[in-house]
Amino acid sequence: MESTDIPLTSSEIGNLWMTYQEKTMLLRFLEYFLESADNEEVKQILKTTYDFSEQIVTKIKQIFEGAGAVIPLGFTPNDVNKGVPKLFDYLYEPMFLHMISKIETPLFAFHSTMSYRKDIRQLFKQLTANSQEMYDQCVQFLEEKGVLTRPPYISMPTEVTFIQDDNYLSGFHLFKDKRALNAIEVSLLHHAIEMNLTGMQLMIGFAQVAHDKKVKEYFVKGMKLSKEVETTLGEFLREDYIEPPATHAGKATNSTVSPFSDKLMMYLTNLLGSFAVGSHSLGGAFSLRSDLPLALAKLAQKIIPFVKEGGEMMIGHGWMEEPPQVEDRRQLTKT
């Protein structure tokens, strides 16, 4: 039996639907960036990413059509406005793709582990590999331009040691200094701050150009929340005399003309917020100093209601497309 003759499972339908939403969103941003980018190497990265994303959207359409499912709406050319002033300046385009690749790579890898039909498994393997390649290209380019801050270097370990004192787990010593951060903790902090630096400029730009007053206010909240995350987590690094990541590139301009629909900007903000919740949970799970998980949890307690508020606003405006629904058989028990 051909794999395409096997019905799609609920997880495969859901993950393909989510991928369609994300990829049609990305296509709209790429269309705008391709028009406004002024670096030829950046344009090539954008064009390669655009062509691949377009192929994936077409492939998902074919899979849904073959299964007799309706094609999602996602995001269309109506969600992007061409010919408007640049909303972001020097090299923001590869910084944006660098951020997106950090979301896509673990997401598509996770989707692949929930896929059973051979063609769907291969599709998500292809998506994962492409996101990794996009990450590689962006890192290479941004490092060459000197606008990407590497995580800090530390001394190489010269012997194997074991933790002897449970004070290693404590971050709240009253009478002595806390231990220094370990390499795992530094890497998690650096990753979270780096993502928020790019996200904060996105929120600034969105807040400047949003049409709806409440949507504009929501993006201002996102801007302030990104700054709080960067400041809170950056302080952990500064306590150990480590400078948090920073860059002079990729700032929002002073344009007030929107390249994107409010719907599109709200969707991406919701996606970034949801990823931040998962990322903070992962960071807390792998941090062995007790003050770090607590700080990450407190930040998550602010991000979760922010994401929820965004979802409610999208529903209120009729912008949130409903995922494929399981048949409600609970009514059978009430007869």
Rank of each mutant, 00 (worst) to 15 (best):
V147F: 06
W17K: 01
V257D: 07
N81S: 15
L107N: 03
A210N: 00
G273R: 01
I242Q: 04
M265V: 00
F108C: 04
H317E: 10
L271G: 03
L202I: 12
F286V: 14
T19M: 03
T76P: 03
N15C: 03
D177C: 10
N254T: 14
Y92N: 08
G234R: 03
E93H: 06
L225W: 11
K82S: 15
L123N: 03
Y32W: 08
L87I: 15
G310N: 01
F29G: 05
Q21G: 02
T232F: 02
D119R: 02
F306M: 02
V209H: 09
E217C: 00
M18T: 12
E327N: 09
A109H: 14
V160M: 13
P7F: 02
N130F: 14
H211M: 13
N182M: 00
E104M: 14
F64Y: 10
S53P: 08
Y241Q: 15
L296S: 05
G222T: 00
T198F: 15
V70T: 14
K176P: 08
V220E: 11
V257N: 05
N254E: 14
I60T: 07
S258C: 04
D136Q: 10
E41P: 06
E2T: 13
A37K: 01
S261Q: 05
V229F: 11
H317C: 04
V147I: 11
H317W: 00
A67Q: 12
L107G: 04
